[in-house]
Simulated assay, not measured.
Amino acid sequence: MGKRLLILTAGMGAGHDEVAAELARRLAPDGFDAAVVDVLDLLPLRLGRGLRRFYHGMILRTPWLYGALYRRFFVPSGPPRVSPLVVWMAARLDRALRGRPPDAVVSTFHLAAQVAGRLRESGRLPAASIVLVTDFAVHRLWLHRGNDRYLCPDEAAARTVTAATGRPATGCAPLVRPQFRRDARPVAEFRSADRPVLVSAGSWGVGEVAETMRVLARSGRYLPVVLCGRNERLIRRLRGAGAGLVLGWRDDIADLMAGAYAFVDNAAGLSCREAFARGLPVVSYRPIPGHGRDGARAMADSGVSVYARTPAELLDALDGLADPSTRDRQVARAYALFDAPAAEQVVTASA
């Protein structure tokens, strides 16, 4: 009988779920029976759905409010106060695991890390608890001393985690799907002379991508290709502007990246790691407040991307990528992240 792995995630956008699914896929050949649980589903009275809708609406319509909440609750130093949400989640998860505990637990969302850490610290979770941090900028809600080990986007983030928790932390190769490889075929809908720049709004279609689209189109040097996710209203609005190519949810992003000149991002999430794997340079512009803005700074500080703060800086960053040495240097720094230990190897050794 294979080992049982519990992966705790949360459907706050697509990134956390996709990382969880990819980890489960990679561990299946080693005989792991992986169960993926959304911690928001552990809340009673459909509170998890309400929390997801609230966050979605806030990011979409009042991002300044999320930025204020992030500064108030996510950024301050020291361990966070125990949230009633975490207490409820931990109690329900504890009951669900009685009688058949997993051999290892991996958390890919910050509230999940709080839940697993609470159970582990109290002795109610006998299995090793590993936190797979998906944010380049590690805020304090990721941190709980009860967890056994942290896997981080890079060594700078790992040092931050160890200093705050005293727990072992190391860099970890990004978990991206196998189709994001450097030999992916270019997509036919781009002409070689177009210089297409992918502009990501995430699965929810958030951020100031309309402004980004205007800057690129007005320059006359780039074709903006805006990835609007599942935001149908944004798709209609941008298509009405007629300033570039506007796309909804796509399953062939790897192929689109193969034919693109650069990737402009606003959330510092999984899509950036996919671009890194594909060898596509990343420029952050107008990131969403909170973890998006802090993540953009952290990625730029590590040299794997460029953070453009003005329209002129955005165009300068893109123009600079026409120089092969500049382009190759940025791509090489980003691709070096994949030299770190693979998450599945760490989980296998811990289970």
Rank of each mutant, 00 (worst) to 15 (best):
G202R: 02
V304E: 00
P178I: 03
L315V: 14
R221N: 06
A351T: 01
L42G: 09
V306M: 14
E121G: 06
R236M: 01
L238V: 09
R53C: 08
P287K: 10
R4H: 07
Y285T: 03
R329G: 10
V187C: 13
A34N: 03
G57M: 06
L40A: 08
A243R: 09
M89H: 05
I235Y: 12
G290I: 08
W88N: 08
F136Y: 13
V206E: 07
Y70F: 15
A193Q: 13
E22Y: 09
A349K: 05
L45C: 13
V131T: 12
S122M: 08
V306A: 15
P29Q: 02
L97S: 05
A312L: 09
G205C: 11
E211W: 09
L132N: 02
D103S: 14
E189R: 15
G295C: 05
A90C: 11
G303D: 07
L47C: 10
E274K: 12
V246P: 00
P289K: 13
T9Y: 01
L40N: 06
L256K: 08
L65E: 03
D194L: 14
E208M: 10
R49S: 15
V131A: 06
A90S: 15
R159L: 02
L234M: 06
P126V: 07
V283R: 10
L125E: 03
V346G: 02
A104Y: 00
G290P: 06
F180L: 04
L245Y: 01
S122P: 09
A296T: 01
A113G: 10
R214F: 15
L85T: 05
C272V: 15
F74C: 13
R278T: 02
R167W: 04
D94K: 14
I288K: 03
G13E: 08
G279Y: 02
D41L: 12
A116V: 00
R230C: 04
R100T: 11
D154A: 09
A312C: 00
T326S: 07
L216Q: 09
R53E: 14
P153N: 08
P324Q: 11
F32A: 05
L40D: 02
G146Q: 02
L227T: 06
A332E: 08
G117K: 01
R293S: 04
A127D: 06
L5D: 00
R329A: 14
G295W: 03
D33I: 13
L6K: 07
L143Y: 00
G67Q: 12
S350V: 01
P324K: 07
L315A: 10
W249E: 07
D301M: 04
F276T: 00
P102I: 12
W142I: 03
V176Q: 02
T134L: 06
G15R: 12
S107D: 11
V264S: 13
G2C: 08
V82D: 15
G123L: 13
S302W: 15
V209H: 12
A35G: 04
Y66K: 02
M1L: 14
D94H: 15
F190I: 08
Q179V: 09
V39A: 09
R286M: 07
L227R: 07
C228A: 08
R327E: 11
L47Y: 02
L270D: 00
T170Y: 05
R124E: 12
P84I: 04
R25W: 04
R95K: 15
G220V: 11
H139N: 11
Q345L: 00
R236K: 05
